[in-house]
Design a protein around this nucleic acid. Structure first.
Lengths: 355, 355
DNA sequence: CATGATTTTGGGAACATTCCCAAAAATATA
DNA sequence: TATATTTTTGGGAATGTTCCCAAAATCATG
């Protein structure tokens, strides 16, 4: 049983004013006597009046709400992005609704309908690994609701996007492996449906080629990011007649899974096989050996995506040109690729939260 | 520029019907001719009509939205809770708005206002470690908006709550240490403001007392969960004239921090000092040695909290009695407390997500 | 075929707010 | 003091929907 909500009419009646005047007083409209405004504000505070955003939204057709859709949020990556975006959006007066599609295309479609139904003013999206058809996002575009992609971006849609330099990150990771003397470098890649997966693969390829190392297709395995399968693929690689002496994994969870397999087989890391991941998950600094990985400015991805969305939202006449922001990556070297001076594991300043 | 939204009036005009009839057809009201309903549904589908939830909310004073407020969501704990809750709530037709207060009392107050302004139908809350005054939550109660606490529960409010058996979990953890021969067991406790922190401390105390081990106040340190301080306290404990031979930490991040310090001092785990955490964070299975910890049914906490909220929401006449659900914990034994048969680290089936 | 019963439809109020325009009040000017 | 000007206020429409009640249409029964 929700109790009666105080409305401007309640205030108007008590003060013998019209709702129009009360509305003006509360919204800071200039045409209202100072004395009257004071009386209204005082009573409003006293009654703990809260303006009903629903009514305003109905009238203005704006909900001041942004939807953020991510494929999952169990790893620290997306929560960090969300926190960054939320911070920027909150300062601009927007609420945020978070959806996670659980890497399922079906769920993503459902979420899309949900966000449409709750009449969000815009959305920030990182699509699922299953998504190959983007019609459900184009609906937003057609309705004039701005869409910004981040992390996993969609080339076929002309909207603002935030990515990191996946190509360069991968290139540097592989180059680092080459410099430590590795020659048979395997790549556990992600699904072809993900743009960042394709870019990382390209970076891997070009780094090898530019260092006159032939590309061995047997060392490139593309998989669907289902971790228990990573296990199988790593074992497969290790069982090759000519097993790899290094592994560049599409992301940290995959790299960690590989690390488990390799350790359990009694191989030495990095002497027998070196490992590099991608994203610098907090776990990567804690395991042993510490995981060399390509870090991304995660928080900044969220902030930047939010800014691009606000840019689109700000223009009330005509949509501004879509923008593409590519943020830099940075190679973090730990014990999984080098021995000696670099402390193995536990070397980094990480801030784990408390619960 | 948002484009015009299709309304029931558009449909009514096209079909020469009144908005009332169209509304009935769409909502499945029985008093409408089958033929008419078909025509309406057909046109609605064709025009991609979406009912405007804002208008309905304004009318019914229900937003079909639930707020979830958590102190942080960088660790895997709260995201998992949120996923569980969201699943249950979505099936009951509710949307979810997520707020994180970043362990800040100030932010929590701001979030409270936000949720109040967006007229949520109910809230699920785990308060910050700073929160000692709960007036901002009582406002919801007074307005008839049900509140359910989980994980960090508030004793002074008579609302539904979901907790785990912190006392029993702590008791078993400490008893396990005693059984492995440890006698000087330290406890790095959380702030006194958290009910679960107090319960775990009680479990620790009673386990010692029941095994005729005197409680040494020098071995109990209560801290504010700021991880860099954990470092200091662990060093302090190790520097005692009679250092502890075991450490029971309030949570896994604290335990992992302790593990780092202990390893860096060259002590053996568990021979010199054993460690137990609380919550079974995915990291705990990956580090070396694996961390013995008290696991909680995280997903189920969220589901149960959502169910209790739905119970409160369902009764449209009078609020039902608040319920308290206490879920069981389970001790997960790993290499940080025992040597030998138990695999050290990497022993568990963990599912890390992909990004 | 008329009358009553039932099904189907339409009109208007209500939800809380803002905004436009007109009316009223206050103030300035002659 | 009368008139013009400015400030302040009030009334009503509009937003999109549901629900109630009355009106209209259809159907059944004698």
């Amino acid at each position: 049983m929700k109790s009666h909500q105080i409305t401007i009419i309640d205030i108007a009646n008590t003060l013998n004013l019209s709702k129009s005047t009360v509305s003006r007083a509360l919204t800071g409209h200039p045409n209202v006597k100072v004395k009257t405004r004071e009386r209204v504000l005082e009573l409003a505070a006293e009654l703990d009046y809260q303006r009903n955003q629903l009514a305003i939204s109905l009238l203005t057709n704006r909900t001041q709400t942004i939807g953020i859709m991510v494929p999952e949020f169990l790893s620290s990556f997306f929560p960090k992005v969300i926190i960054g975006a939320q911070d920027v959006l909150a300062k601009a007066g927007y609420n945020v609704v978070i959806c996670h599609s659980n890497e399922s295309y079906e769920t993503e479609i459902v979420n899309t309908k949900l966000l449409l139904a709750s009449r969000v003013d815009g959305i920030l999206v990182s699509h699922t690994k299953e998504t190959r058809n983007f019609e459900h996002f184009k609906i937003f575009d057609r309705k004039g609701i701005p869409v910004v992609f981040f992390n996993r971006i969609v080339e076929e849609m002309s909207v603002s996007k935030v990515a990191v330099d996946d190509y360069e990150g991968a290139y540097q990771a592989v180059e680092h492996l080459i410099k430590t003397g590795k020659r048979r470098i395997a790549h556990l890649s992600g699904p072809d449906s993900l743009q960042n997966s394709r870019s990382r693969l390209n970076g891997y390829r070009d780094a090898l080629t530019n260092h006159q190392i032939p590309i061995d297709p047997a060392l490139i395995i593309s998989y669907d990011l289902t971790l228990d399968k990573a296990n199988i693929y790593v074992n497969h690689l290790l069982n090759l007649p000519q097993p790899p002496d290094a592994l560049f994994a599409i992301n940290d969870p995959t790299a960690i899974e590989a690390l488990k397999v390799i350790k359990s087989r009694g191989l030495r890391i990095p002497e027998d096989i070196a490992i590099v991941g991608f994203s610098d998950d907090p776990i990567s600094a804690l395991i042993e050996p510490g995981l060399t990985t390509v870090s991304q400015p995660v928080d900044e991805i969220g902030r930047e995506a939010a800014r691009l969305l606000l840019n689109q939202l700000a223009a009330d006449d005509e949509r501004p040109e879509p923008e593409l922001v590519v943020l830099p990556t940075r190679l973090i070297i730990r014990g999984s690729t080098v021995t000696g001076e670099i402390p193995t594991g536990f070397g980094d300043q990480t801030s784990l939260p408390s619960f």
